[in-house]
Design a binder for these strands. Structure first.
Lengths: 188, 188
DNA sequence: GCTTGCATGTAAGAGGTTACATGATTCG
DNA sequence: CGAATCATGTAACCTCTTACATGCAAGC
C-alpha cells in the first residue's frame, strides 16, 4: 500500500489538504506515483482514524475552508517501519507494448499515429521535468548547498528524466521499425 | 482492461492453457505485463463465456489434462477494435522512489542495501532479456528473414532492455548520491 | 519419501477507476 | 455570464493480490 506511504512522505515534506495533495500527485510526486482526489480523500480519512495523521481546520479568505493534514507520531513510526522493510522490485505494465505486439495481427500502419501521440506526451513530460529541475536544482535560483531532502528529491527527478528520455528513444525505434515493415510489406 | 488484450495477443501468437499463459506472463509477455494464474483463470472463464475464446480439452500422457484456449472470431474483432482506440500513456508507479524521498526523514544509509538488491534484480532481468534476444533475434539460430510479428516482438524486447539499462544506471546514480550524503552528514 | 512441475480453481479483501454530486470565488 | 480554480466528498464497479485448496507424475 504505497499510496499511504507516498502521502506520509509528501505531508512530511509539507503539511496540506487533500486538494493540495491531489495537485502534488499531478506534479512532483507524480514523477513516480499517481492518485486521484477520490482515492486521496478516502485514504486520508482512513489514515486519520488510524491515528497516523493530525488534522486542523483552516479558514481561508475568498476560498473554501480546508482541512490541513500533518503527520502524527504514529505516522512517522509507520513510515520508518516501511522504509526498513524490503519491497518487491517493480514490474512494468505497458499497454502500448501489448498494442505493438498485437499489431502483427492487424494493420501495423494504424500504430503510427498512436505511437507518435505517445511520443509527444513523453516529450512534454520531459520538458516539464527539465523545467522543474532548472527551477529547483540546477538554475540560478537553486540552493547553493542543498540539504539531504533536496538531494534525494533531485535524484528521483533525474530518474523521471532518464525514464522519459529512454521512452522517447524507444518510441523512435518503434516508429522506425513500423515504417520499415510498412514499406517492405505494403497493403496497397 | 489490457489483461484481456494481452491474453488475446498471446493466444494469437500461440494457443495454450491457463497454466501455459501464466508461464508466458513470467517470461516474454512479462516484459510489459504481469499477471498471476488466479487472475488468468478468472479472466479466461469470462472471456470464454463472452465468446471471445474457443476451448478444447486436451488429454496428455503423464500430465494432467489441460484446457487449451484459442482466439475466436469475436476475440479477433475485439482486439482489432481496441487496437484502433487511443489509450492513455502510462504513468510510473515506483515504490522505490517513495522510499528514496522518504529516506530524508529517516536514516539514508538504510537505503543502500535495498537499492543494491533492486539493482541486482534489474541486472538479472537484463541478462535474461539479452539471452532471449540472442536466442530469438540476433544469434546464429535466429531467423534470417524475420516476419512482421517477430520484428514487433523484437522491438518490444528492445524496450525492455532499454528500460533495465536505464534503471540500473539510475540506481547507480541513487547509490552515489546516498553515499555522498552519508559521507558528508555522518551519524557517528 | 520429498520436491518440483503440471494443472486448475475459490474466496476474501485491498486497491484503483469512473461517474456523480455540491458549492463558492475569481477572471475574462 | 461562463469557465476555471478551490475544496470535499459518495457510490458502484472493476481489478489485483494473497491465502487457501487439490491432485497426479517424475526425478532425486
Amino acid at each position: 500500500m504505497a499510496l499511504e506511504h507516498a502521502i506520509l512522505v509528501s505531508l512530511l515534506e509539507k503539511p496540506g489538504s487533500g486538494y493540495e495533495l491531489a495537485r502534488r500527485f499531478e506534479r512532483s510526486i507524480g514523477y513516480f506515483w499517481t492518485a486521484t482526489h477520490q482515492q486521496i480523500y478516502r485514504v486520508l480519512k482512513r489514515m486519520e482514524s488510524d491515528g497516523l495523521l493530525d488534522v486542523r481546520d483552516v479558514a481561508q479568505q475568498g476560498r473554501p475552508d480546508k482541512r490541513e493534514y500533518s503527520v502524527a507520531g504514529r505516522g512517522r513510526t509507520a513510515l520508518s517501519e516501511w522504509l526498513h522493510e524490503p519491497i518487491e522490485p517493480e514490474s512494468l505494465r505497458h499497454d502500448l507494448a501489448v498494442k505493438i505486439r498485437g499489431a502483427a495481427f492487424d494493420d501495423p500502419a494504424a500504430l503510427i499515429s498512436e505511437v507518435e501521440r505517445h511520443r509527444q506526451v513523453h516529450r512534454d513530460r520531459l520538458a516539464h521535468y527539465l523545467a522543474g529541475e532548472a527551477r529547483d536544482f540546477t538554475g540560478p535560483e537553486a540552493p547553493a548547498a542543498p540539504d539531504a531532502g533536496q538531494e534525494l528529491q533531485h535524484v528521483v527527478l533525474r530518474g523521471g528524466i532518464a525514464y522519459e528520455r529512454m521512452t522517447i528513444a524507444w518510441l523512435d525505434d518503434v516508429l522506425a521499425t513500423v515504417h520499415r515493415l510498412v514499406a517492405s510489406h505494403p497493403r496497397t
